[in-house]
């Protein structure tokens, strides 16, 4: 058998559930081929399992350890890692869960796991802060900000254990200088204004657009209440023009 065929067979054994036996590998008085191959198979499962357990902690605690482990096993078989970076192994997990039987028991599981994945992406995207941007515009947006529009107020999962009913909510996820990842949502009006702030290059242009939807007094009231808080929370900075 040529090298390519050997690698195809070994890859299949290592990356999928089921029998580890192979005629390609020597069994000896110490151990059978299947026992030797199992060492690779087990390790190849445990490394991404550990990553997924860290990245989807709330999802895991909701499902329980046993169900989570079984789902991870199926997920890793269906979605073998397509990158060198093990930290990216969870990127298809929300889609996988949405298509699984769990979605009928927990209709919010796709959004919940997606939100957890956005926390991971946000953490790494924080590194996209470019020093040079600080001199370019008046609003410097934190590059780690992610948003998720969900039918459930998922951000409350981090704060409270009680159940919440359905409510269309835009959840913001972002990372700050101290490497903390934050998850928060605001009222509809506040969300609308914050979204425009993040989209605009300056406070002036944001206000100009927002005045098409808001009374001046109402807009001033919301900005007075939130602008400093949003800046202090690390969502964006407002730089003076150079």
């Amino acid at each position: 058998m040529d090298l390519k065929s050997i690698q195809k067979e070994i890859f299949q054994i290592v990356r999928t559930t089921g029998n580890s036996d192979s005629d390609l590998v020597v069994s000896d008085e110490k151990l059978k081929a299947s026992e030797r191959l199992h060492t690779y198979k087990r390790s190849s499962y445990l490394k991404p399992h550990s990553c997924l357990s860290d990245d989807f902690q709330v999802t895991k605690s909701l499902l329980g350890e046993e169900r989570f482990d079984k789902l991870v096993e199926s997920y890793l078989t269906l979605y073998p890692a397509d990158t060198h970076f093990i930290n990216e192994c969870g990127k298809y997990f929300p889609d996988f869960l949405a298509a699984s039987n769990e979605a009928s028991s927990y209709p919010f599981i796709k959004d919940l796991s997606h939100l957890e994945w956005l926390r991971v992406e946000s953490f790494y995207d924080f590194f996209n802060y470019k020093d040079e941007n600080k001199n370019l515009g008046k609003v410097v947006v934190n590059p780690s900000i992610k948003t998720l529009l969900s039918d459930w107020p998922l951000h409350l999962i981090w704060d409270e254990e009680k159940a919440h009913g359905k409510k269309l909510t835009k959840v913001f996820v972002w990372t700050t200088e101290d490497r903390s990842v934050h998850v928060q949502a605001w009222s509809d009006d506040e969300t609308k204004i914050l979204t425009e702030m993040l989209r605009s290059s300056s406070l002036d242009s944001a206000v100009e657009i927002l005045l098409l939807d808001f009374e001046s007094e109402k807009l001033t009231e919301i900005l007075t209440k939130n602008l400093s808080a949003w800046i202090n929370a690390g969502l964006f900075e407002i730089k003076a023009e150079t």
């Binding site: 195809k8 990356r15 190849s44 397509d82 060198h84």
Partner: peptide, 25 residues
């Protein structure tokens, strides 16, 4: 070693068969 094939990764350092073909490759 090899770690995967066809763009898929095992995150394992898998040994090679010690063959003349593998030496060449």
């Amino acid at each position: 070693c090899w770690t995967g094939i066809d763009g898929k990764n095992t995150h394992e350092l898998l040994p090679l068969p010690y063959t003349i073909e593998a030496v060449q490759h």
